[in-house]
């Protein structure tokens, strides 16, 4: 995902190498924060947080292979915190404790990392296309209209607003099962 040469240049202070890394990882970070249902401003805030964390953890980078996974995890954590804080009106400082090292990632089954390759993206969507309704349409619409609200999505799917959330949950459960490697429970 990110090669050793790029990382070495970033660690040496090369802005162009950093820009290249940003270009490569930005879509991943953005999709991670947007998946938490954040509006544009909050999503931008969470994404920026993830990049600031990477900047402060740069000296800890040893394994370039891990950066994508670390950034995905970090962006998700920032977005999740922000979503939680949005339900709480108080002033809330958020001194999150990030992982110590960029290498500290775990073995991930995160399909978002896999779909950075076009083949995996196509495979994911072939799986969705093989699903029954309403899941096929729901997941398609959810991906195509990231800014649409629940009411709008439910309306376009012809279902009551209150049904959208639970239905989406069931469709994601089904997709998760279909994507599970053979032999996994």
């Amino acid at each position: 995902m990110i090669d050793r040469h790029t990382i070495d240049a970033v660690l040496a202070g090369d802005q162009a190498a950093w820009d290249a890394m940003v270009k490569r990882l930005s879509p991943l970070v953005w999709s991670a924060v947007r998946a938490y249902g954040l509006g544009a401003a909050d999503a931008a805030d969470a994404a920026q947080g993830a990049w600031l964390r990477l900047v402060e953890h740069l000296p800890g980078i040893r394994d370039p292979e891990r950066i994508g996974s670390w950034m995905f995890t970090t962006a998700r954590r920032e977005a999740s915190l922000l979503r939680r804080r949005n339900q709480d009106e108080r002033l809330v400082p958020e001194p999150v404790e990030p992982d110590d090292r960029v290498d500290a990632g775990h073995a991930h089954a995160d399909p978002a990392l896999a779909v950075l390759t076009a083949d995996e993206g196509r495979r994911l969507w072939r799986t969705v296309e093989s699903m029954h309704e309403p899941c096929r349409s729901l997941l398609r619409l959810m991906a195509q209209a990231p800014d649409a609200g629940v009411r709008q999505l439910a309306g376009r799917l012809g279902m009551p607003t209150g049904s959208y959330g639970p239905t989406r949950g069931r469709c994601l459960d089904r997709l998760r099962a279909m994507l599970a490697p053979e032999g996994m429970p």
């Binding site: 994404a47 995160d110 978002a112 991906a143 195509q144």
Partner: peptide, 27 residues
Amino acid sequence: PQPPDDEALIAALRLASGNDPVPEHVS
């Protein structure tokens, strides 16, 4: 590996469909 949670799946679907480009000010 842990199975992906809902947000990870949503992120993957959106990423693969390419319908939510990163705003320039974010980049």
